[in-house]
Amino acid sequence: MLTSSLRSGITAASLGVVLVAAPVMAETEQDPWEGFNRSIYSFNETVDRYALKPLAQGYRYVTPDVAEKGVSNFFDNIADVGNLFNNLLQFKFEAAGKTFARLTFNSTFGLAGLIDVATPMGIEAHEEDFGQTLGYWGVGSGPYLMLPLLGPSTVRDGLAKPVDWMVDPVGDVDHVPTRNTLYGLRLVDTRSRLLKAEQIISGDKYAFIRDAYLQRREYQINDGAVKVKYDSDF
């Protein structure tokens, strides 16, 4: 818990540092549809303010930490199906093997994914989605795109989302009420995980989220190897 908080804190902090110099350029080059995006963003913000965020805060308030962790682990385990698929598509066989092992041990020893036994056993996660796969194959991200309800994306990542939904096991649940409950719970879980992270947002919230998103995607696609351009007098 502490390490994951630290990790997200460090990631956020490092993103923040990089972002100080970045936004002006990003606005023009990577966000040509800013006006449109901002209007979608304000719609999303309204939905979030009056529905999603209060729901997530309530969920966090009433649910014991251990149960919250279990729910997060459960959905992380389900997400490993997509991670496996995309690692294979990126020919990362070692990561795919590890992801398969994670999925196997967490689904059995980890009681259907409620407990993440794989991480302490030394089998680390390798998260990949189809947008990253396209990026890995060399497909450019295209302009930044704010999607209604789905949040920040790019043209490439937005077009990739249906593929991610196809490999999402929740979509294969035949019992409709169960499936919808899982979708709803995952949404609340995802939002509640962002509650802590959003506390560091400052200044123009739209620009902050856009830049953080774009930087993070680049970081993910390059598996952590980010090109840093230093000024000549640095």
């Binding site: 092992a101 196997t104 041990f105």
Partner: peptide, 14 residues
């Protein structure tokens, strides 16, 4: 099968 060695003298498997 998937096997995870835990140290030199233990393992779990599925």
């Amino acid at each position: 099968g998937v096997q995870q060695n835990l140290g030199k003298r233990a393992r779990v498997w599925v």
